[in-house]
């Protein structure tokens, strides 16, 4: 950003006083504009947080922004009420769905990506094109058939069914991302290991996997967020006792007006872990996005 500004000042002689004044003014306008935009993006989430910390009567009588004039009204009551009403179990369900779905995708996709990148077999490139084609397949296509299949297998409504669905639909992106990363690993490293007679699975585990940590981190955070934030799959495949937070909250949406004291803290609880992860790993998040944007 500074590189953009410097050269302009390096050539002051060529520019008139007026142009520079306009530039200065323009710079100020840009600042103001960007501050407004940032506020615009922050306010809605801030609103959710404040609403979740205010009592029901406060929320019914005045806007959350009145907080700034009388700050003493905050309370954690909504949160304790929410947890007392059994919301904690849906939080736990979300964890039970998300963690295995993330780990399985990483493991299965790493193996497949390795095969696509470093093992030669007939039809490899064609199969990989199929994987790319599957990148954009909408989840909706599988809802009815998989519901039938799960009914047949007897896992409809279970956490296992939800996990497997997420794993399958996470795989195309995961394979795509990891294969593209593996291809970039210097061939000499693998050749050396193969010369030493290391079995392929050990090369995979000791050479490729450690090198691929950044890519795996990207993939992991993406998959984690997708599964954590999913509503549709849970809506169809999870029973009430196995439902994640998103589905639990969705069932409260019908009485939105009277339920804000449940919905606001619930929504905030559901987004706090993704936000923490996002801020901790945003580097990998961005990398993953850049590497496989089209999905």
């Amino acid at each position: 950003m500074t590189t953009l500004a410097e050269p302009r000042h390096a050539q002051p002689m060529r520019r008139g006083l007026f142009t520079r004044a306009v530039d200065r003014l323009g710079g100020g306008l840009v600042q103001v504009f960007m501050i407004l935009v940032a506020l615009f993006w922050l306010l809605p989430t801030l609103g959710l947080l404040v609403v979740s910390l205010r009592g029901e009567t406060d929320n019914n009588s005045s806007g959350w922004w009145t907080l700034f004039t009388k700050p003493a009204q905050l309370t954690f009551d909504n949160y304790s009420n929410l947890l007392a009403s059994g919301f904690g179990s849906s939080f736990w369900n979300t964890v039970l769905i998300t963690v295995p779905a993330t780990l399985l995708v990483i493991g299965i996709a790493a193996m497949a990506g390795y095969a696509f990148a470093w093992i030669e077999f007939p039809g490899r490139d064609l199969v990989f094109l199929v994987v790319i084609a599957l990148l954009v397949v909408p989840v909706q296509i599988a809802l009815i058939p998989i519901a039938k299949l799960y009914g047949f297998l007897g896992i409809f409504g279970s956490i296992l069914g939800v996990v497997l669905f997420h794993v399958a639909f996470g795989l195309p992106f995961a394979i795509f991302l990891l294969r593209n990363f593996f291809v970039g690993i210097p061939r000499e490293l693998l050749e050396a290991a193969r010369m030493d007679g290391a079995p392929e699975w050990r090369i995979f585990a000791t050479v490729v996997f450690p090198l691929a940590k950044p890519a795996i981190a990207s993939l992991g955070i993406f998959q984690f967020l997708w599964v954590w934030n999913d509503l549709l799959v849970a809506l169809v495949f999870a029973d009430t006792e196995n439902q994640p937070m998103t589905k639990a909250l969705q069932s409260q949406m019908r009485q939105f007006g009277t339920n804000v004291d449940i919905l606001a803290p619930g929504a905030f609880l559901s987004l706090i872990i993704p936000l923490v992860l996002f801020f901790a790993f945003q580097r990998y998040f961005v990398q993953g996005m850049l590497a496989g944007s089209v999905k």
Partner: peptide, 28 residues
């Protein structure tokens, strides 16, 4: 600006239900 990407669309939906509340004393 990037932060909403990490938030579930459900949470984003709840957030905007609050933003769009009809009553000017509630909806921002």
């Amino acid at each position: 600006l990037f932060m909403p990407m990490a938030v579930s669309l459900l949470a984003a939906g709840v957030i905007f239900r609050l933003v769009y509340e009809q009553d000017p004393d509630k909806g921002v």
